[in-house]
Structures are given as structure tokens and as C-alpha cells.
Design a protein around this nucleic acid. Structure first.
Length: 411
DNA sequence: CGGGTTTGACCTGCGC
DNA sequence: GCGCAGGTCAAACCCG
């Protein structure tokens, strides 16, 4: 992975030159939308950069920005109602190296800070609405994150060898347009990917033909913008790279990953922002059809999702991942400027049962929901549903599903 | 040897 | 119809 990253950097430089020489004027509608998104992202990243700078001297904390935008998952509604974010929950920890900067170490440490600074069962986070040009509500929140690990799970190496960007900031953007609008031009053809539905052609590669005129609604998507030097942030699941493409108007290629679990069609795309190369955009598509999480190589057994399974077990210690979604649930309520001035406040897994509150002072109006106390029994049910279930209590999920259903019914 | 990555070819949708 | 770009496939390759 590191090799790939290094290769990518060289490749990016070459591509950047090529791109500069081959700039074209024509842009598709999608490109325009993407540019708008990127512009929005850039807007957020500039803010995040500012925040990241503020924390540069404060250790190997990652800072993520949540930029949740969605046609369907309207965060202005979401934050009044249970949030639904189809990303996998994961966290980062290195038990093999006694790395003081491991994610759980941070969590443990931060938990004390958190507990001392606020009600242990109640916290909230600040989010900052961003304007979006295409009817997408964009928000970001910030929170510290540990140095991301690579999928190799040698987190100690990662932490120690990626000093160029000790801070990570991410923005997330959810998208589920196709789930609402079947006419969306970006509808994917997921069913076309079914091998048994494809017949061979007489081509050199005997590619399987794809069904025509059978558009399938695009899976829910959720994108993260993470300020990190590492392209492929480990989210706790196992991914297999199946493609890489150059992105127009970007010197950085886009990598395509698929969940390695049999029968799980979750995909993710990873690309680096052309506006801010330090930002990695990871887009998740679909929901995992298996319990969270897949264990890294060399580890046996199912990991539990601490956010759901807090305190139930400590077996999850073998996951090496960046907790991209987690901070949504663990964001400590503070003015984001002060987040970095004070010690980072991240709760450990026991904080997953915390209740979200939305004090009047919150900078994220409307963000208010309660997280029920999770129990082992609750989480076991949750884990059977994939991404959302990996991170959200069933109550929230069901509420969100109902919300989605209501929205769809309106259309 | 199994699993993951690389990479060029191929497919599809869309705009012109 | 053509070209472009995004997305996917799968053989070849790499690596532990």
C-alpha cells in the first residue's frame, strides 16, 4: 500500500503534467456537478486546513470534517431526526506495537477528558453548514482522528512513517439520489455486474455482456473527505482494488475498491482532491451484507463494533482503521476552534452509548437526537444490516428508514 | 499458493 | 455516430 501510494505520487505528478496539456473545454453535466462538489469540498477543506493548522502542534490527531450532503439524506432533517449515514464504522488501533498514538489510546485518553468536561452520557458536536449549489445540504464537523492506518494494518509503521500530515481532516457527503430519483443520470447498473446475468461475447476478453435498459437505482453513497497523506484509509473492512482510473481535470487517479466479503457488493472509490491534494475523498456505495467488521489479515474472529458494542467485548482491538464515521457520534461539543486548543475530546467505545444533545449553544442548529443505550442484544441485530447498522443503533436506523420511505412516498 | 494489486481493454451513458 | 469519461473486468503480476 505504501508502495502504491508512493507510486501514485509519481504517477500523479506525471498525470498532472498530462492533464495540464490536455485540458478540454467540454464538460459534462456530471463534471459540472462534481466541480461544484469539489468547489464545495475545497471550501470545506480550506476551513479544515485552517483548523488542521491549528492543531499541527498538538500531536498525531486526525481531524475530520463532516460534510454531509445529500439529496435524500437532508441533514437539516437528519439532525432533527435520527441520522443515517451509510458508512462503515471502524476505528483505529494498534495493539501490536504499543503505539501510544493508537486510536484507542486516543480514545481512552480522550474519554477521560470528555468525561471530565461533560456529562458522560451526553455530548454533541458542532457542525457547520456549507452552501451547496446543487440542492445538497452540506455540513462539516470537525474532530480529531488518529493517523490513519493502511490496510496492511501495520499501524505503527503508518503512524511513524507518515509524519507529513499528522492531522487528518475529513468531510463527508452523503448521496442517495438514485434512491429518490430513478431518473438520475448517474444511476448505476449494479445488476449488470452479476456474472450470471452476463453472457460472453466474442471479444478478445470474452467480456460478459450487460443488460441494457435496465437501470438500477444507485446504492446509497456517502463520501468522506479526509485530510490525510494516505489514500486508502482503512475503515475496518477489507477491500479489494478492482480498478483505477484517471480523473478528468485531476492529476490524481481514482481507485475502485470492492468489499472482499463474498456476496457483499459494497464498493468504495478513493480519490484525492485536485484542489487540495492533502484531502482524500472516499465514497462508499452500498451496504455491507455481513456483520462488521472484517478482520485484518492475521486476525481471527469477528470484531465488534465498539460504537455499538461498547464494553461488550474487547475483541475488537485488532481492527486497524480510521474511524471516519465515528466522529459523527463522538464529536465533542465545543466550538471547533477550541476543540484543538483544548485536548481532543473523543470518547472511547463506552461513549457510544452517549446521548446526543443539542444545546442551544450548539453551532449546528437542529442537530439533536438521542442515542439509546446500546446493548449487546441491540448491536447484534444492528450488525446484520450492513453499513448503517454498523454504526447506528437500530432505533435510529429504523427511524431513518421510515423517513426515507416517507420521502419516497411523497414522490 | 492464495490473495491483493496493476493495468490495459472493454462497456455504458451522455453530450455534441 | 462519434468521442469522452466513468466504471468494470480480468489476465498478469506481485507479495507474504
Amino acid at each position: 500500500m505504501e508502495k502504491e501510494i508512493e507510486g501514485d505520487h509519481h504517477h500523479h505528478q506525471q498525470q498532472q503534467k498530462e492533464q495540464l496539456n490536455s485540458t478540454k473545454n467540454t464538460e459534462t453535466k456530471i463534471e459540472h456537478q462534481e466541480q461544484q462538489e469539489k468547489q464545495q469540498i475545497s471550501q470545506a477543506s480550506s476551513s479544515s486546513s485552517h483548523m488542521a493548522n491549528m492543531v499541527t502542534s498538538s500531536d498525531h490527531h486526525h481531524h475530520q470534517l463532516e460534510l454531509a450532503g445529500n439529496n435524500m439524506i437532508n441533514l437539516s432533517n437528519i439532525f432533527d431526526t435520527p441520522i443515517s449515514l451509510p458508512f462503515p464504522y471502524s476505528y483505529f488501533e494498534d495493539h501490536s506495537s504499543n503505539n501510544p498514538n493508537s486510536f484507542l489510546d486516543l480514545l481512552r485518553q480522550d474519554h477521560h477528558q470528555f468525561a471530565s468536561s461533560s456529562n458522560s452520557s451526553s455530548f454533541s458536536f458542532d457542525a457547520y453548514p456549507l452552501q451547496n449549489n446543487n440542492n445538497t445540504n452540506l455540513y462539516f464537523t470537525d474532530l480529531p482522528l488518529p493517523q490513519p492506518a493502511t490496510t496492511k494494518a501495520e499501524s505503527s509503521e503508518v503512524v511513524n512513517t507518515a509524519p507529513t500530515s499528522p492531522n487528518s481532516t475529513s468531510v463527508s457527503s452523503s448521496s442517495n439520489e438514485a434512491a429518490i430519483d430513478n431518473t438520475n443520470k448517474e444511476v448505476t447498473l449494479k445488476d449488470q455486474e452479476e456474472p450470471d446475468q452476463q453472457e460472453q461475447k466474442g471479444t478478445k476478453r470474452q467480456l460478459k455482456p450487460k443488460k441494457k435498459n435496465q437501470k438500477k437505482a444507485r446504492e446509497a453513497r456517502f463520501a468522506f473527505l479526509t485530510k490525510s497523506d494516505i489514500d486508502n484509509l482503512d475503515d475496518g473492512y477489507r477491500w479489494r482494488k478492482y480498478g483505477q482510473k484517471a480523473v478528468k481535470n485531476s492529476p490524481y487517479p481514482r481507485s475502485y475498491y470492492r468489499c472482499t466479503t463474498v456476496g457483499c457488493g459494497v464498493k468504495k472509490r478513493v480519490e484525492r482532491s485536485s484542489d487540495d491534494p492533502s484531502i482524500v475523498m472516499t465514497t462508499y456505495e452500498g451496504q455491507h451484507s455481513h456483520p462488521f467488521p472484517m478482520t485484518p489479515r492475521g486476525h481471527i474472529g469477528m470484531l465488534t463494533s465498539p460504537i455499538l458494542d461498547h464494553g461488550a467485548t474487547t475483541a475488537s482491538s485488532s481492527s486497524f482503521s480510521i474511524p471516519q464515521p465515528r466522529y459523527l457520534l463522538t464529536q465533542h461539543h465545543q466550538p471547533y476552534n477550541s476543540i484543538y486548543n483544548s485536548s481532543i475530546s473523543m470518547s472511547n467505545r463506552s461513549s457510544s452509548d452517549a446521548t446526543f444533545v443539542n444545546p442551544g449553544s450548539s453551532s449546528f442548529p437542529g442537530f439533536c437526537y438521542d442515542m439509546p443505550q446500546t446493548s449487546t442484544s441491540t448491536t447484534s441485530a444492528i450488525r446484520d444490516h450492513g453499513l448503517l447498522q454498523d454504526i447506528l443503533p437500530s432505533q435510529i436506523r429504523s427511524d431513518t428508514i421510515n423517513t426515507r420511505a416517507n420521502e419516497e412516498d411523497k414522490k
